[in-house]
């Protein structure tokens, strides 16, 4: 249903995915206890390929497959900021969001 293709052409001039990571990564000094589970699940059957998660995720954790479906990048949820954005931008509720398992994930401590 209404899937888009060739997302790089569509969104090539947008700040998304790898470009976001290039900005965020140098300052992404939040330490992390490695996550033990895929705490956010994408229902790829439901996904309508709108690409919002891909374009808006502040850690660039999503990508669009060649078929135009949202997917995790190869590094998966390594740097997911646990912010909840993707859950609220998905128009078809294809993203089943949760916090990572207790005791895992990012650690915010700067002072």
């Amino acid at each position: 249903m209404g899937r888009r293709y060739n997302t790089d052409i569509l969104y090539g001039n947008q700040l998304a995915g790898a470009k976001v990571r290039a900005i965020v990564e140098p300052i992404l000094v939040m330490s992390e206890t490695p996550k033990t589970e895929e705490h956010i699940k994408i229902d790829q059957e439901k996904c309508n390929g709108c690409g919002r998660c891909y374009r808006l995720c502040p850690t660039g954790s999503y990508e669009m497959t060649p078929e135009g479906i949202a997917d995790w990048r190869s590094y998966g949820m390594t740097h997911c900021g646990e912010c909840g954005l993707c859950r609220y931008v998905c128009p078809v509720d294809a993203i089943d969001w949760n916090y990572p398992q207790g005791g895992t994930g990012i650690i915010h401590h700067w002072s």
Binding site: I27, M30, G81, Y88
Partner: peptide
Amino acid sequence: KPIHVNFHA
């Protein structure tokens, strides 16, 4: 110097 970043909805 930027030393930390976080975000939330």
